[in-house]
């Protein structure tokens, strides 16, 4: 499968992402990274963690599943039913398992012939930051709080492209929970830092207003709301590929999970915002810009990522 060619300065005349060294593409819309490409993915994540140190963000590692009932509090399933991926298990009843084993468990075309399925109450992580709001539900903060976490995220799509649109991909996020002004300040600063990184790397990308891929967007009230109150900016590479996003949630998660921010004037529902980085998409942008050999890509560990506002890290 070939991918449109970037017109960015320094890019090759034509690049097929399957040709990137250290990448194997699966028909299921997933990617295998190895060798120099895997090392570069790790270096990207280290770079974003260094960005997070600007706010002394506390690092978390969360599991792969998240309780569906928790995401239901923010109406996730009505907003994005087309993206959700659920972990399904067979009903543990022995007769059911016998039936499953006795018949052909997997058909020749790869489809699993499920027998009775146990009740599903979890969903595979659709975005890394959701775990943070669930984890901190009921908390009260008297200062702004900053967190960072990464996770393999799952979004079912109608079609996939190597590195650029995957069923499972790696997302690093930095999250601020505070009052409105604190979150705005965080997003402004974080956006500037990402701008500096993109510029230092020479990527042809810029911040662009965006909206989330709501189900039936034209008639979805949340989509309408995002149109009149833009809360999402994406760092779009080559005019087509979002490699990062900056999102202002108002007090959406604070209200849903009872998280408060206490100030001198009292307690209010916490506001939140996040910047998110899609690791595989950064790899795609770098491949389009610098060619298929990751060994020739810029050294990220020596890249200054905090040369915004006078702090160099």
């Amino acid at each position: 499968m070939s991918t449109p060619v970037s017109s960015a300065a320094g890019s090759r005349a034509e690049l097929t992402l399957e040709d990137v060294e250290g990448l194997a593409c699966l028909d299921s819309g997933q990617a295998v990274l190895f060798g120099a490409l895997f090392s570069f993915a790790e270096a990207l994540d280290r770079m974003f963690v260094r960005v997070a140190t600007r706010w002394a963000a506390q690092e978390y590692r969360f599991p792969t599943f998240i309780a569906a009932a928790e995401l239901d509090r923010v109406d996730y399933f009505r907003s994005f039913p087309h993206l959700a991926t659920f972990p399904a298990c067979l009903d543990p009843d022995e007769a059911n398992l016998d039936t499953f084993c006795r018949d052909e468990p997997v058909r020749g075309d790869g489809v699993v012939q499920l027998t009775a399925v146990a009740p599903v109450s979890d969903v595979l992580t659709p975005a890394a930051c959701y775990h943070l709001y669930v984890h901190h539900q009921g908390a009260g903060f008297d200062t702004p709080r900053y967190f960072t976490t990464t996770n393999t995220c799952f979004r079912r799509e109608a079609h996939y492209r190597p590195l650029e649109r995957l069923w499972s991909f790696t997302m690093r996020e930095i999250v601020c929970m505070g009052d409105r002004d604190e979150v705005h300040a965080f997003l402004t600063e974080a956006s500037a830092v990402v701008d500096a990184i993109v510029s230092n790397l020479g990527l042809a990308a810029r911040w662009t207003p965006a909206s989330d891929p709501f189900f039936r967007a034209p008639t979805n009230p949340k989509s309408l709301m995002q149109k009149i109150d833009p809360t999402k900016q994406e760092m779009v590479f080559d005019g087509r590929l979002a490699i990062a996003s900056a999102n202002f949630h108002h007090d959406h998660f604070g209200r849903a999970f009872g998280i408060t921010r206490t100030t001198a004037t009292g307690a209010e529902q916490v506001h939140s915002g996040c910047v998110a980085f899609g690791i595989e998409r950064w790899l795609a942008a770098l491949a389009h810009t610098f060619g298929p050999a990751p060994a020739r890509w810029p050294d990220l560990d020596s890249l200054v990522v905090h040369n915004v506002g006078g702090t160099g890290v």
Binding site: P221, K222, L224, M225, I228, D229, H250, D251
Partner: peptide
């Protein structure tokens, strides 16, 4: 109205 969260998405619709 929006900034103060007096209107939610359903209200706006």
């Amino acid at each position: 109205l929006i900034e103060a969260r007096y209107l939610e998405s359903l209200d706006v619709a």
